[in-house]
Simulated assay, not measured.
Amino acid sequence: MPNTFELSAFMPYRLAVLSERVSRRLSIEYGHTHGLNVAEWRVLVHLQRRGKVSVRDIHNCVNLEKPRVSRAVARLESAGLVQKLGKQTDGRLVAISLTGEGERALGEILPLVTEIEARLMGELSETERETFFSVMEKLHAALDGDPKARPRSAVELAPDEG
């Protein structure tokens, strides 16, 4: 039987390619303006949303391996965009938070990346946008019911504050 599998038609591959293209496009903005890579960007926006958190918390919520998160945090700390604080409950755990400089950097980056998102989403009608997000949620729900799938984090399940 000949192999008729078409990678270009395989939904997981198509999602990965689209996700990577969007991430790379956004990274042009924050890379050019602030010298950040994708991991550093994800750490910064997670800290903006959640405040002081551990590397473990970031790792669990931003879809990056723990060593990559640790390297990103170290580089961001060297750049003065984040700071590490010891937690009272366990001396080995460190809380990471944005510095004033990190907040300023995000204030400059967010309008650039949200404009790109708006341009992309502007290609879709309101009905298409609603369908797009509904389909994504259905796929998440299917994975939520799969015991072998990585569970969504509490951050992925929680609506944004403000």
Score class of each variant (00 low, 15 high):
Q88T: 14
F5L: 11
D90V: 13
S23Y: 02
G80K: 03
S134D: 02
K148M: 11
Q48H: 13
L76V: 06
A39I: 02
A158H: 05
L15V: 03
I109Q: 00
L36V: 10
S54R: 08
E103Y: 08
M136V: 10
R150V: 12
G100N: 11
R104Y: 11
V94A: 07
H46I: 06
P147L: 12
A72Q: 03
V17K: 12
I28A: 08
V53H: 11
L98V: 02
L64D: 00
P159Y: 04
G122Y: 03
S27M: 10
P159V: 13
G35K: 06
L124I: 09
Q83S: 11
L93I: 07
A16R: 14
V69W: 02
K66L: 15
L76F: 08
V94R: 14
L47Y: 01
D90K: 00
V155W: 05
V53Y: 03
N60V: 07
K148H: 07
L112F: 01
N37S: 06
S78Q: 08
L36S: 04
W41S: 06
H32A: 15
Y30C: 01
N60D: 15
V38G: 09
S153C: 00
R150C: 09
S134E: 00
L98M: 03
A95V: 01
S153Y: 08
S153R: 03
R21I: 10
L93A: 05
A154C: 12
Q83T: 14
A39S: 03
V55Q: 15
L64P: 13
R50G: 02
L143P: 04
S134R: 10
A141E: 11
E156C: 06
R42C: 00
I116A: 00
L36M: 01
V73T: 04
D144P: 09
K84R: 15
R75G: 03
P12L: 06
R119E: 11
V94Y: 00
T99I: 07
W41A: 10
D146F: 01
N3H: 14
S19F: 12
S54F: 08
A158K: 14
Y13A: 08
T114V: 01
F133Y: 12
C61S: 15
